[in-house]
Write a protein that binds this DNA or RNA. Structure first.
Length: 486
RNA sequence: GACCCCAUGGUCUAGAGGCCUAGGACAUCACCCUUUCAAGGUGGUAACCCGGGUUCGAAUCCCGGUGGGGUCACCA
């Protein structure tokens, strides 16, 4: 049992591609098989520098590990299509020799004219050129004119794709044309190379996106011409954008990399992707890739294209953010914190910050912002908050009193002790505790939202808390407070 | 346009003829909790595309329509 994922290195790993790879991987692993990564790089014009390694990095981050691939040579390589050219040419020559394929000398212009003529007659744009009829001793064969190789497709009969997900799908051969298998530059086309390579790599189950279903009869015809045994096929439904169209740049983030940059954890992303088109028998939603292996079967794969939902992805990310070990999240959020120019080496630790703020963050970006105040004192204050909580003339003296009381507090600095201090000060000033809490939060963080105040104060530390309160109390008195949206 | 696939709330889905008064999750709305914001809890709104069959009985089977998607390259 062997499956494969065969991307072309022309860009980044798409979430649709990631899901196809995930399903192929899970399917193979469920059956104790091997998962192969093959890079389809025959089209040199579309090749993007660095794309291959980016693709591999994304897959690995998601926990989709291949058993064989360009960087893990097995016995059935090479695993880059461009390095298999000799194989493709060999089989093409074989088909030519047997008379199952032929050289076609028609120019692109001629083909275009033919196609348009057939379109005008409302006929399918099928190649009906003259080259199919040429005899072996036709002088054109020695003319050194460029040519392509076309497969001789049967004029009648049907080709049936026995799809593991959809059942038998019948195509009429008469509707297919003599498609090109080798281009004029002597490199193979996709529909030819894919057959040679899948066969060569002993792929038993070709699992791929649904967009390939219509290509499959052509490939079956190649298998048959070559006398090769057919693999099984399984076409996985596509992932669509919210407007039900094919995913593209204008839909915002579509690449795995982009989601990770947005602060989505790879664990959450792959879990979300798993739920797009597949569901566990018991309806469970949260699981790792490894946990999904024993549960994953093709009969539970949806037949319908799925529309991805950013909201649910973020919700799932938030769940992971608060359930994963603190150290793990701290490591993940670190680059995001550093990106904000925060020097977190002093004072509170990253772990303390994560524990404090993760429950109300949806992404690592949110989390980094929510932790910011621990290392950077507010240089501006939320205007609405200022209006609401700094308006009263006695706020300055209250904060001062609070600072004094906290300064006196025991060095143990526990949550309960801090809470009691607030209660005591409120009582002394004969105000409600909330009248102290809100201005204090604003003074300490610059905003009106955030973690529970006593936890926040505890993590921020006695010294820093007192210093910030005094600073704000002074600024308020001197009316030198900067009120700018932070 | 031709061919192919598909069709349960806004979204992801459960459902393989009676267990369905159609279940869950996200989103949404209300309320509760509360030092803010979240989180959490409770409850609510919301779906079997339409039309014909088959059957005692259909979300489930068949046919047609409609709608959505895919493929029709010397791209993969």
């Amino acid at each position: 049992m062997r499956t494969r994922y065969a991307p072309s290195p022309s860009g980044t790993l798409h979430i649709g591609g990631a899901r196809t790879a995930l399903f192929s991987y899970l399917f193979a692993k469920h059956h104790g098989g091997k998962f192969v990564l093959r890079v389809e790089d025959t089209d040199r014009a579309r090749l993007v520098e660095g794309s291959e390694s980016a693709l591999m990095r994304s897959l690995q981050l998601l926990g989709i590990q291949w058993d064989e691939g360009p960087d893990r040579e097995g016995s059935l390589g090479p695993y880059r299509q461009s390095e298999r050219l000799a194989l493709h040419q060999h089989y093409a020559a074989q088909l030519l020799e047997k008379g199952l394929a032929y050289r076609c000398y028609c120019t692109p212009d001629e083909l275009k004219a033919l196609r348009e003529a057939r379109m005008a007659q409302k006929l399918p744009p099928r190649y009906m050129g003259t080259c199919r009829q040429r005899s072996a001793d036709d002088p054109i064969h020695t003319s050194r004119q460029p040519y392509v190789v076309r497969l001789k497709v049967p004029l009648d009969g049907v080709t049936v794709v026995d799809d593991l997900i959809r059942g038998p799908v019948t195509f009429e051969n008469g509707l297919l044309d003599d498609f090109v298998i080798m281009k004029a530059d002597h490199t193979p086309t996709y529909n030819f190379a894919v057959v040679i390579d899948d066969w060569g790599m002993q792929i038993t189950h070709v699992t791929r996106a649904e967009e390939h279903l219509s290509n499959t009869p052509k490939q079956i015809l190649v298998y048959q011409a070559l006398g090769l045994e057919l693999p099984q096929f399984a076409h996985i439904p596509m992932v669509l954008a919210p407007d039900r169209s094919k995913l593209s740049k204008r839909h915002g983030a579509t690449a795995v990399e982009e989601y990770l940059e947005q602060g989505i954890l790879p664990e959450a992303l792959v879990n979300y992707l798993l739920l797009l088109g597949w569901s566990a028998p018991d309806g469970r939603e949260f699981m790792t890739v490894l946990e999904a292996i024993p549960l994953f079967t093709l009969d539970r794969v949806q037949h319908t294209a799925a529309v991805y939902d950013q909201k649910k992805l973020e919700w799932m990310n938030a769940q992971y953010l608060k359930d994963l070990p603190v150290e793990h999240v701290a490591t993940a959020v670190r680059p995001f914190v550093e990106k904000l120019g925060i020097n977190w080496g002093q004072g509170s630790t990253l772990e303390e910050g994560v524990a404090l703020a993760r429950e109300r963050s949806h992404t690592l970006v949110d989390l980094a912002h929510a932790m910011r105040f621990l290392w950077q004192k507010p240089d501006a204050f939320d205007p609405k908050g200022v209006q609401k909580h700094f308006g009263a003339p006695e706020v300055s003296s209250r904060l001062q009193a609070l600072a004094d009381a906290l300064k006196q507090a025991e060095s143990t600095w526990t949550h309960d002790e801090i809470a009691e201090t607030f209660d005591r000060v409120a009582e002394t000033l004969e105000i409600k505790r909330a009248a102290l809490i809100h201005p204090c939060r604003l003074a300490l963080t610059g905003t009106t939202v955030g973690p529970g105040l006593f936890e926040l104060v505890q993590v921020l530390g006695q010294q820093e808390t007192v210093a910030r309160l005094r600073q704000v109390a002074t600024d308020l008195q001197q009316e030198s407070l900067k009120v700018i949206q932070p």
